[in-house]
Amino acid sequence: MMLSRRVTVMTGILYGAFICIAFLAGYEPGQRIGRDFVYFSWDILKVMPPVFILIGLFEVWVSSKAVEKHCGKDSGFAGFLWAILLAGTAVGGVQMAFPVAYALHKKGARLGMIFTYVGAAAICRIPLTTFEASFLGVKFTVIRWAVSLPLVILAAVFLERYLTVQSYKLPLMEMDK
């Protein structure tokens, strides 16, 4: 279930009005929230065009067969490596990983693969990792990768098992039919 349209629009209007009033009245905390909003939105929006263009291209060019072969029902351990490799090169926050994961699933990637993808996108994006290692040390990063990646795969497998038993369907899959 998604947020109803009315709630979304109302929230947006109220929030916008609050920010405007804060700026007019010189209310400092409100102004800070407003600035944060612009800053974060820009941060997210600037990665949007290439990410969604690539998703669009992916949808028309990559055949379901290829995805199924690597990440589908019968894919084995190598599928997880594919998912992690794909995630390592991902950009944007985890919020960008959801649409990509969904696109993969629509092309036949199994649930376990897309959960691995999202998890790995959170853990081991290459640009982020170089940043992390420079601030916290390589040892810190190595431990984090070595422990979390196997656990992410494990969790993804269990999640998939459980959801498959429940014959769970992703909500958008029903809508897109």
Partner: peptide, 15 residues
């Protein structure tokens, strides 16, 4: 809220 749109409440919670 975003994750829920793509994965559904249950899967998002469990993840």
């Amino acid at each position: 809220p975003l994750e829920k749109r793509y994965f559904g409440t249950k899967a998002a919670l469990m993840r």
